[in-house]
């Protein structure tokens, strides 16, 4: 009895928190935790999966997310601090990047005329950060402009770029995996932000310049693009 009641502490807490996003695999909440603004990501049970398999998969995703965040931090990449992880409710408590907006919103809100030149420094920053992440062998797994946050610096106006949502991430040194990671971003980027081909090229260029192992990755990216095109011609 007592155990059941205490195990409900986190669901009980989340039931009063502000729900930010209901996804297919997880719910994202905003709450105050240990006195700090916090984002809680709770992975939930998928009814169609076998319970044991589901438990295993969900656990693995949670573990991978925590590991990748720490690996990125060690390499000096800005990612939200992990405050607490509960493996029984599969919840991760993360630092809320207060006062930030997504790169997606940032691009969408800039006037179309400025969409290329004005955003070039940002595209270059993104390329550099991804290069550093891949050099650490972290594959994000779900790169989109919504999974990047920008927070304006205190006064100097230089904003800080954060990567978030490492739920599908894993560790791999294979150029193929890194190439696919970039391909996923390219697809998402160009479909979310029309007429930004040149901007995305800038991003790739700065990635290539910043990463020690970029030539094999860019080659794989080109292969994956070709494969993607062939597939769409057939299908």
């Amino acid at each position: 009895m007592a155990l059941e009641k205490s195990m409900a502490a986190i669901p009980e807490f989340l039931s009063k928190a502000e729900l930010l996003k209901q996804g297919a695999e997880a719910r994202v909440y905003r709450a105050t935790f240990l006195g700090r603004p916090t984002i809680v990501k709770e992975r939930f049970r998928k009814q169609y999966r076998h319970p044991l398999l589901d438990e295993k998969l969900t656990h693995r995703r949670t573990v991978q997310e925590v590991r990748s965040v720490l690996r990125c931090r060690r390499a000096g990449i800005s990612v939200p601090v992990v405050y607490f992880v509960d493996y029984s409710s599969h919840s991760i408590f993360l630092e809320e990047i207060v006062g930030s907006s997504t790169v997606r919103d940032h691009i969408a809100s800039s006037p179309p005329s400025a969409r290329c030149e004005g955003l070039e420094p940002l595209a270059e920053r993104v390329g550099q950060v991804l290069a550093r992440m891949h050099d650490e062998d972290v594959i994000h797994g779900d790169l989109t402009t919504s999974n990047m946050l920008l927070r304006c610096g205190p006064e100097d106006g230089v904003s800080e770029l954060f990567l978030i949502d490492f739920g599908l991430s894993y560790i791999s040194a294979l150029p193929e995996d890194k190439g696919v990671d970039l391909y996923v971003l390219e697809k998402a980027f160009l479909s979310t932000h029309p007429h930004t081909e040149a901007l995305f090229q800038r991003l790739l260029k700065s990635y290539a310049a910043a990463s020690k192992k970029s030539s094999a990755v860019i080659k794989k990216l080109e292969e994956v693009r070709l494969r993607g095109r062939k597939r769409s011609m057939v299908g």
Partner: peptide, 25 residues
């Protein structure tokens, strides 16, 4: 705590992250 890490975050951030992640390291 690495040098790169100290450039991008506080010492407290570094410490708290390791405490929270230690079960899976």
């Amino acid at each position: 705590v690495t040098q790169e890490e100290e450039k991008s975050g506080t010492l407290l951030d570094a410490v708290v992250c390791r405490m929270a992640a230690k079960d899976v390291m």
